[in-house]
């Protein structure tokens, strides 16, 4: 039997890699992929705890996380397309019109 702690450790590791990718990369698309990585880490945690607690609430919650991830990906990629159309760049440090 695999201990629950291992699953939580795996989930924490993937989440932290996502945090690192989001903060370190310049490319907006890579930042979005990092967000998807973080959402997946949360899902692993939810499904693992749901299995060990013998309760389906965690799996239902992960179902909603997947729904929100799909909506977020659609809107986010539309924003990236609009940005690229106006600025011809996907690098976040070149988009600084709102900097004071």
């Amino acid at each position: 039997m695999v201990p629950l702690y291992w699953y939580m450790l795996l989930s924490a590791a993937v989440f932290c890699i996502g945090v690192y990718g989001f903060l370190a990369r310049r490319n907006v698309i890579l930042m979005f992929i990092s967000i998807e990585l973080m959402l997946n880490a949360v899902n692993i945690n939810l499904v693992a705890i749901s299995h060990y607690m013998e309760d389906l609430a965690g799996q239902i919650l992960s179902f909603f996380v997947i729904t929100v991830a799909a909506a977020e990906a659609a809107i986010g990629l539309a924003i990236i397309i609009a940005l690229f159309r106006n600025k011809e760049t996907v690098h976040v440090d070149e988009m600084k019109e709102m900097q004071g």
Partner: peptide
């Protein structure tokens, strides 16, 4: 182009410390 933005060291420190806390 450069792969990493200026906040890469901060991101690495933050991610590692977050993992240690978790």
């Amino acid at each position: 182009a450069d792969k990493y933005s200026m906040s890469q060291p901060a991101g690495a420190v933050l991610a590692l410390s977050l993992f240690a806390v978790l």
